[in-house]
Simulated scan of single mutants.
Amino acid sequence: MYLIAMLGNLLIILVVSSDRHLHTPMYFFLSILSLADIGFTSTTVPIMLVDIQTQSTAISYAGCLTQMSLFLFFGCMDDMLLTMMAYDRFVAICHPLHYPVRMNPRFCRILVLVSVFFSLLDSLLHNSIILQFACFKSVEIPNYFCDASQIFKLSCSDTFRNNLLIYLISVILGFVPVSGILLSYYKIISSILKIPSQSGRHKAFSTCGAHLSVVCFFYGTLLGAYCGSTVFHCSRKLVVASVMYTVVSPMLNPFIYSLRNRDITRSLKRLHSRIIKTQGLE
């Protein structure tokens, strides 16, 4: 699953960067999302594979904080990029004539830089709270990656305020992107319903179908894992729930965006043809 996720996302980046027909805002955000997915799953799975091989579940203090920082950074990046892609679809469907002006390359790069800034802020805020009271040489956690809530459970001191602060930060930094996605799709659906012809409605909706599928799967598995952590007392069930959004979601994203996307399919065929021709010349 990890290899499929890596190869699939690397292939998306390669196709988008090599085909000038895909140098559009939607595919620019998709390539950055693929890069974030590679980082997101690479912060957890390789260490898990090493733990399985060595039969050790211990992690160092520095390693735990580093893993948590990267995990939060790339997770927040996914969150922000999905919101930007929803806004891109909103402008394309609701304001098609203004699309080239609004979604110009400079504005798209600024949006990506904003997502990087807030992702770093989220990661730094979580780490600053953990550093106030948690210190250990090594520790064993009931999951395959370090998470703030699990580190709090290992602390002997009262962590109610810290937990409350962590949840408050998560709600603020999570509520804004989710609100943006919901508002964008509310406007998109309203505009699609106003289209008189059924074929026109189907064509308009097909342009955002892949993104909507990725959003539903990502947030569905994420909520399932975090809600499950309060319900599941079995660590095995918690790990299975966590795998769904840390491994399965990044693995499925390239398939969702490529299987029913004619632009990606055509670009893949052109890339394959170029490789065949290059091999023939050699």
Rank of each mutant, 00 (worst) to 15 (best):
F73D: 13
C76G: 06
R109S: 10
F73R: 12
D122I: 04
S119T: 02
H95I: 04
N104Q: 06
S149M: 11
D88E: 14
E140W: 01
V101I: 15
A86V: 10
F90N: 05
D122P: 00
L72S: 09
F145H: 10
M77E: 11
F133G: 10
H126M: 10
C94F: 10
L111Y: 00
I129E: 11
L125V: 11
L125Y: 12
L124E: 07
K137P: 02
L131S: 09
R89V: 00
M68W: 01
Q150L: 14
F90I: 05
I93M: 02
M85Q: 08
M84C: 07
L65T: 06
I129T: 12
L120I: 00
L125S: 09
C76H: 05
H98I: 09
A86K: 06
F74K: 02
D122Q: 00
H95W: 06
V101S: 13
D88T: 14
M68H: 05
A148H: 07
L131F: 09
I93Q: 04
P142M: 01
F145Q: 02
R109A: 13
I151Y: 01
S149Q: 10
P100N: 03
S119A: 14
T66D: 04
K137T: 10
C135L: 12
F90V: 00
L120G: 07
S69C: 09
L124S: 08
P142W: 00
M85C: 10
C94W: 11
I129D: 12
L72Y: 03
L124A: 12
D88Y: 05
D147E: 14
T83R: 15
L125R: 12
I110A: 04
S115T: 07
A148W: 07
L72I: 12
R89Y: 06
R89S: 13
V101E: 15
D88M: 02
S128N: 13
F118E: 09
L124I: 05
M77L: 15
F74C: 08
F133H: 13
M85P: 02
F107L: 08
F133A: 05
P96V: 06
L111G: 09
S69E: 06
A148G: 12
Q150C: 00
I129P: 11
M103P: 10
R102L: 15
S138V: 01
